[in-house]
Each structure stands twice: as structure tokens, then as C-alpha cells.
């Protein structure tokens, strides 16, 4: 596909114009997320701190949750409630969720105290909030799938709250089959999708600099005019 007009594709000064939606979409994506931003080789100097590790820690835990969840789904409850290996995988599925939430909350604290929504990163912050909320719902449906007195107690307490807010008719926590489907299909897809969007937004806007970051940093120097104008609008 070639761009319309006399302008050659790939020119720096003038953006190529496309007549097809695929070309337009490709141009739109490449402008916002060029390959060197999507998969960068290095990060600004201020990222060399342990406080920046917890986001990736949460993603690592999420990968294990999904892998162990796939193993549990393939073998079924007759396996993971009875066999030794099944118990083990079931337990690591639970403990990786514990780690996921711990890392996510520490990531949240870190980003809150460095006001990570600065510099046009509001959507990154909002997708993080949505990821947190959807993860809570997913973990909740996991508790309901223990199929013991604990899960029965949780379900019958929760149904009153869900009925009170008016969603009990289509999100029935006492319907085990429905909750199983939510837990192993819809909600994992939602969590993975929101987290993927969150990571793409982080790549697009770069890791937020600390409040007292040195203006001599390479990324800050590069983005300074744009960031200064964006932050100036909010002052």
C-alpha cells in the first residue's frame, strides 16, 4: 500500500496520508507507539530503583496465575481436589494470586506517591484502577469455586450485596456453573486485556519520572517541551 499524493512514505517532515483504513490505522499506531518505544533497549536513569520492580512483579505473578489456571482447567476439580499434584497446583494458583495483589498494591502505593498521572498519563492511571477492580472480582469468583463451606458462606453473604446494587439477576454468585464460566473465561480475558492496555500506555508515555527527577535525564530532556506544556495546562 502506498500513501496518496506525491509525498513519499516514511518522510520525516510530512506524515503520509493513506486512503485505506488499514493504512490509516497503521500510521496512527506507528505515530503513537513506534517500535523503539514498544520494545525499548534501555530506560531512564531514575528507573534504577526497586520501587519500579513491582509492576513487572505483578505481571510475572499474573503469568503464573494464567498458566496454573490453564492446568487446573484442563484437568478439572476431580483432579485438583483429590491428587497430590492437583492440590499443589491449586495451592500455587492461590499463592500467586496473593503475590499478584501484594505487588499490585505496592505498585499502586509507589505510583500514588509519585503522582504517576502527570504528563498526560491519566489513561494509564485509569486503566491501572480498572485492572485492580477487575482483578478483585476475578479473585472473588475464585473464592466461590473452592466448593466448600467457606465458598458457600462467601456466596450467600455476597448475593445480598449484589442484589442490593441490582446486578444479582445476571451475576448470580450462588450459580456455580455461571461463576465457573466467569472465572475461567470472561474475567481472565478482561484482566489480561486491561493489563495489556495498561502496559502499552506505559510504553507510549514512558515511565513517569519521580517528582524530584533531575532535568538532565535523557528522557526528560527529550520530552521536556511537551511535558512542560501539558503540565502548564493543569497549573
Amino acid at each position: 500500500m502506498t500513501p496518496d499524493g506525491d509525498t513519499a512514505a516514511g518522510t520525516v517532515d510530512e506524515e503520509p496520508r493513506f486512503s485505506t483504513w488499514t493504512g490509516t490505522a497503521r500510521g496512527w499506531m506507528l505515530r503513537r507507539l513506534p517500535p523503539d518505544k514498544l520494545l525499548p533497549e534501555d530506560q531512564p536513569s531514575y528507573v534504577a530503583s526497586w520501587i519500579y520492580v513491582f509492576g513487572m512483579g505483578a505481571i510475572a505473578a499474573l503469568v503464573y496465575i494464567i498458566v496454573s489456571g490453564c492446568i487446573l482447567a484442563l484437568n478439572g476439580p476431580a483432579w485438583y481436589h483429590v491428587s497430590g499434584l492437583g492440590h499443589f497446583i491449586n495451592s500455587t494458583h492461590l499463592w500467586s494470586v496473593e503475590l499478584f495483589f501484594m505487588f499490585m498494591v505496592i505498585h499502586l502505593w509507589g505510583k500514588y506517591w509519585m503522582a504517576a498521572w502527570r504528563g498526560g498519563r491519566v489513561l494509564t492511571w485509569i486503566t491501572g484502577v480498572i485492572a485492580f477492580v477487575v482483578s478483585i472480582v476475578t479473585a472473588f469468583t475464585g473464592y466461590l469455586l473452592q466448593t466448600n463451606f467457606d465458598s458457600q458462606w462467601i456466596a450467600f453473604q455476597a448475593k445480598d450485596a449484589l442484589n442490593a446494587v441490582g446486578v444479582g439477576a445476571w451475576f448470580n454468585v450462588t450459580n456455580l456453573g455461571q461463576i465457573l464460566m466467569w472465572h475461567i473465561t470472561l474475567l481472565p480475558l478482561a484482566v489480561a486485556g486491561v493489563v495489556a492496555l495498561h502496559v502499552v500506555l506505559v510504553r507510549m508515555h514512558g515511565v513517569v519520572p519521580p517528582l524530584d527527577a533531575a532535568a538532565t535525564d535523557a528522557q526528560l530532556q527529550q520530552d521536556l517541551p511537551q511535558r512542560a506544556s501539558v503540565e502548564g495546562e493543569h497549573l
Partner: peptide, 25 residues
């Protein structure tokens, strides 16, 4: 225990020096 552990990890992450990568700029 979980909450106390998270607070400890948060504080440690703020003050523990981050290792320098070998052969990096």
C-alpha cells in the same frame, strides 16, 4: 501479616540500593 509485609517491602524498595547492570551505559 500480609499488610505488614507489604509495608515492609514498600519501605525496603525505597531505601535498598538497586544493583548496577554489567556492561550498561
Amino acid at each position: 501479616i500480609v499488610i505488614v509485609l507489604m509495608v515492609i517491602l514498600f519501605v525496603v524498595a525505597l531505601f535498598l540500593p538497586f544493583p548496577r547492570g554489567k556492561g550498561r551505559k
